[in-house]
């Protein structure tokens, strides 16, 4: 025992809880040290709270049309009504309330699609890396084909066939974005597979399923979390773009992209209709990116941007 260093001894005697606690404390410290990380997590938290408590934060029914109140400017401008914080759109709907409810769609699609593509990518990446040979060849060729078609093109074709809607949107973005997960998971599996502890497990008679779940998956987890976080940001933009093109969320459901598309026609007279939803998208996406950057630096020092 005395021949082992302290950390090795800890590892052998399985001092798991203390180690995790140390990790958490380290994480919190590094979060507070990183200003953008703190800002990112604050933004993400605020958006989540607004989305979950939407009825509490909205001042009006998001879909309620009131022709008498159409295109009112924000409340601090001349002509603004005190009960319409960010003004109203071309149908007299309250913009603040619509942004509040729109956050639900952004988050549901963002998280739903990422979970789906993560699951597909992890499964295919594991299969390709673990079994190799023709399984690997087929999966990686399919991945090449997916890379060759710009994602948005594939989505357009699927949406043209299936028609727009929340479920379709999650499905189509999820099915399109699995390639990066598959590649990273496959790479990680290939390197982990050759390490001694996996060889040892196999020599002890562990079956494939057991090796995958207890030895390989935990090792892939941190890269997986990093890509997922970054994907939430791109997915939110993707959803907004598709809704903007009229192919995503259909009214009466509210989407930030759809709001922007409405506001585009009234740009000359009412700048606020298109400005605030865009601001909401940008702030949310930046928050997720900042949070993701910090997460990457903490979970995987190898991927840390050289600073």
């Amino acid at each position: 025992m005395s021949l082992l260093s302290k950390s090795q001894a800890d590892g052998l005697s399985g001092k798991q809880p203390e180690e995790t606690e140390g990790k958490w404390r380290h994480g919190m410290k590094s979060l507070l040290k990183s200003k953008t990380g703190t800002l990112g997590i604050l933004i993400v938290l605020v958006v989540c709270i607004i989305a979950i408590g939407a009825p509490l934060f909205a001042t009006h029914e998001p879909a309620k049309i009131s022709p008498a109140q159409r295109l009112l400017p924000p409340m601090w401008l001349e002509g603004g009504a005190p009960d319409h914080l960010l003004g109203t759109d071309n149908l007299g709907r309250d913009i603040w309330s619509r942004i509040v409810y729109g956050s639900q769609v952004s988050l549901i699609v963002g998280i739903g699609a990422v979970l789906l593509s993560g699951a597909i990518g992890a499964l295919l990446g594991l299969l390709a890396g673990f079994y190799g040979k023709w399984v690997n060849a087929i999966i990686m060729r399919v991945a090449d084909a997916f890379i060759a078609i710009p994602a948005i093109l594939f989505m357009l074709v699927v949406l043209a066939v299936l028609g727009p809607g929340l479920g379709t949107l999650i499905f189509v973005i999820g099915v399109t974005n699995w390639v990066s997960y598959a590649r990273v998971v496959r790479g990680e599996v290939l390197s982990v597979k050759e390490r001694d502890f996996v060889k040892a497990a196999r020599a002890l008679g562990a079956r494939n399923g057991r090796i995958i779940f207890t030895h390989i998956l935990p090792n892939v987890l941190s890269s997986f979390i990093i890509i997922s976080t970054m994907s939430v940001a791109t997915t939110i933009i993707m959803e907004a773009s598709l809704s903007f093109l009229g192919l995503g969320i259909k009214p009466p459901a509210v989407s930030w992209g759809g709001m922007l598309s409405d506001g585009r026609q009234y740009l000359a007279t009412s700048w606020w209709v298109a400005t605030f939803p865009g601001l909401a998208i940008t702030i949310t996406v930046l928050g997720v990116i900042f949070f993701g950057d910090w997460l990457r630096d903490m979970l995987d020092p190898r991927m840390k941007s050289k600073e």
């Binding site: 922007l260 506001g263 585009r264 298109a274 865009g278 998208i281 940008t282 996406v285 990116i289």
Partner: peptide, 12 residues
């Protein structure tokens, strides 16, 4: 910022 702004909003 360029990454966070959706380009249709930049355009508008």
């Amino acid at each position: 910022l360029g990454k966070g702004m959706p380009n249709f909003w930049t355009g508008i």
